[in-house]
Amino acid sequence: MLEIDDLTVDYGSVRALDHVTLRAPLGSITTVLGANGAGKTTLLRAVSGLARPASGSISFAGHRIDRRRVEDIAGLGIAHLPSGQGVIVELTVAENLRLGSLISPKPPAGRKEDLDQVYDMFPVLSQRRRDVAASLSGGERQLLAIGTALMSRPRLILLDEPSLGLAPRAVAHIMAVLRRIHEDSGRTVLLVEQNARSALSIADRVVVLNLGRVVIDEDASALAADPRSMQRLRHAYLGF
C-alpha cells in the first residue's frame, strides 16, 4: 500500500531521516516508535508532501507521490492528522467534518451517510456540532480530527501522536476508536507514537526510529514475545 524506499530528508544541515525503508501493507496498522527527534514526524510529513525528500522514493498504491503537491496527495486518499492541532479551531464541528468530505467528489447522499456514521461513532460530536472546535477539549478535538479524516474516506490514515497531552482514559478511548475503525473498514494506518505501550496494544507491525534510522522493523506480536527485542526497543528510547 505505502512503500517508502531509501528515504532521506534534511532540514537545513540536519539530517532528519537517513535512508529509511519501510512498508505499510494494505489493511495493517503499523506503528512508528522512537524518542523525541528520532524523525517520526518528519516521516509522516514526507509522506503527505509537507517535507521534501532529498533522495529516495515514496509510493502509494503504485503511484510515486514524493514530488507531488500536498493537496494532490490528500486527494489520493491519504489523511494526515498532525499532532496537537488536527482541527481548524475557528470552524464549527460540523464545518470541520464537511471540509473533510469535500476532498473526493461524491454525491450528497454518500456525504450524509458518512456524516451519520461519524456522529454515530462519536456521539459527543453530534451534540456539539454547532460549536466552534476551539471550545472542545483535547480529547474531543482528537476525535473530531479522526472524524474529519474519516469523512474524506481515506485509504491510508497517518496519525501523529494522537495521545499527546491527553489523560490516560482519553488515550485508551482513542486507541479503542482506532482499533474499531481498522476492524470495521480495514483501513491502513500508520501511527506515530511516543507512548509505546498503547501503540503496541493495537499495532500489527512495529518500526522503531533512532536519530533518523530504522533500528527495528518487526511484527508486533514477535517483538512483544522476544525479550531481546524489547531490550533493543528500550535502548532506542533511552539510550541504554
Partner: peptide, 15 residues
C-alpha cells in the same frame, strides 16, 4: 475560510 485560518491543515484536507 479553512485556507485563511489554517493553511497547512487546509492543504492536508485537500484544499
Amino acid at each position: 475560510r479553512a485556507g485563511a485560518y489554517s493553511p497547512e491543515l487546509a492543504r492536508l484536507l485537500g484544499v
